[in-house]
């Protein structure tokens, strides 16, 4: 499914609508360059889990931002990750699946560990426009997004 956002507010709304369709154990893999809106989309997804907009900022520094709750929510940013060892060392695998919901920025760095994810690709389409392609949602949810 392909969507076009006309700005950060719309990108966040798309995130929120996507977030409402997630369930415990889901992982959202985000792909896209710097400035393509990954953190903005994550802010919307997190809002669907009751996390305040203000509390979601770039996670590039800490790699993992954990928000306790039911389900626990993980905002993961692999910008600084270079290899398998780093992934292991940062404890990324402990955050995916099980009873938690995770959103992973720079998901290409997960390597072969990105099976069974909801894949979201984000592209800068000039000015404030962003193209957002979402794959892996259940058919029923997809029609409702």
């Amino acid at each position: 499914m392909k969507l076009t956002s006309d700005g950060a507010a719309r990108t966040e709304e798309i995130g929120y609508e996507l977030g409402k369709r997630l369930k415990a154990g889901d992982t959202v893999a985000l792909f896209g360059d710097l400035g393509s809106g990954k953190t903005t989309l994550t802010r919307g997804i997190a809002r669907a889990f009751g996390i305040a907009r203000r509390d979601v900022t770039s996670a590039s520094f800490t790699i993992i931002a954990e928000y306790p709750g039911d389900p626990p929510f993980f905002h993961i940013d692999l910008y600084r990750i270079e290899n398998e060892e780093d992934l292991e060392g940062a404890g990324v695998w402990d955050c995916l699946g099980r009873n938690s919901v995770a959103v992973v920025e720079w998901a290409e760095k997960l390597g072969c560990g990105i099976k069974n994810c909801i894949r979201v690709e984000m592209t800068d389409a000039g000015d404030d426009r962003r193209e957002i392609s979402i794959e892996g949602l259940d058919e029923e949810d997809r029609n409702n997004l």
Binding site: S60, F61, I63, Y79, R80, I81, E82, E85, D86, E88, G89, A90
Partner: peptide
Amino acid sequence: KYGGIVPELASR
């Protein structure tokens, strides 16, 4: 040489 703080390196 990594252009960032790499956690595994840092913890080690």
